[in-house]
């Protein structure tokens, strides 16, 4: 058993716990900026899990993208919430018990699958540099059409978002 085999579950577990903790904070705090930044740190912890699972490119990409995404989320929350600072302690939840039930049910269902399936042997991953190269080749060869589709979808979403959000002109 090599050192990486011992440390890998440890780091995956630690960052996983951090992701779960910040995920809980998202819905526990009443300050909206805190909530958005807790989601950011949850996502960053997920990125760190990717790094621990030797998916270096994806991990760094996740950490980079989420910083921008969640900061923009924070500004929208401040714009559109009644009480972004959470000073008044407004309750902004509904159907609480049903939601808790649904969440726990989903978790238990997935956990049952996780523990019932026989997962088979662990395979060795390639070196990070090799991985980045192979991912590039994958994108440029087999998955090129999918990647192009993603690009077109982004363009469509940009146009759609602008069309929805733009102020109606007075005719």
């Amino acid at each position: 058993m090599s050192a990486s085999e011992i440390f890998q579950p440890f780091f995956v577990g630690i960052f996983g716990l951090a992701a779960i903790w910040f995920g809980v904070v998202v819905f526990r705090t009443s300050s909206m900026v805190r909530s958005a930044l807790a989601l950011l740190f949850s996502m960053t912890a997920i990125g760190a899990m990717f790094l621990a699972m030797e998916a270096e490119f994806l991990g760094v990409l996740q950490i980079m993208m989420m910083a921008t995404e969640m900061a923009i989320m924070a500004i929208f929350m401040v714009m559109y919430m009644m009480d972004p600072g959470g000073m008044e302690g407004m309750d902004m939840t509904h159907q609480k018990y049903a939601s808790i039930f649904a969440g726990i049910l989903a978790t238990l269902g997935i956990l049952a699958v996780v523990f019932l399936v026989e997962w088979g042997p662990v395979a060795e991953a390639a070196h990070p540099e090799e991985q980045t190269r192979m991912l590039g080749i994958e994108i440029m060869e087999r998955s090129m059409l999918i990647f192009e589709t993603a690009g077109v979808t982004i363009l469509t979403a940009m146009i759609a978002a602008t069309a929805i959000a733009i102020e109606r002109r007075k005719s």
Partner: peptide, 9 residues
């Protein structure tokens, strides 16, 4: 292996 991207992150 992804240094240039990491600077950005």
């Amino acid at each position: 292996a992804t240094g240039a991207l990491f600077v950005n992150a």
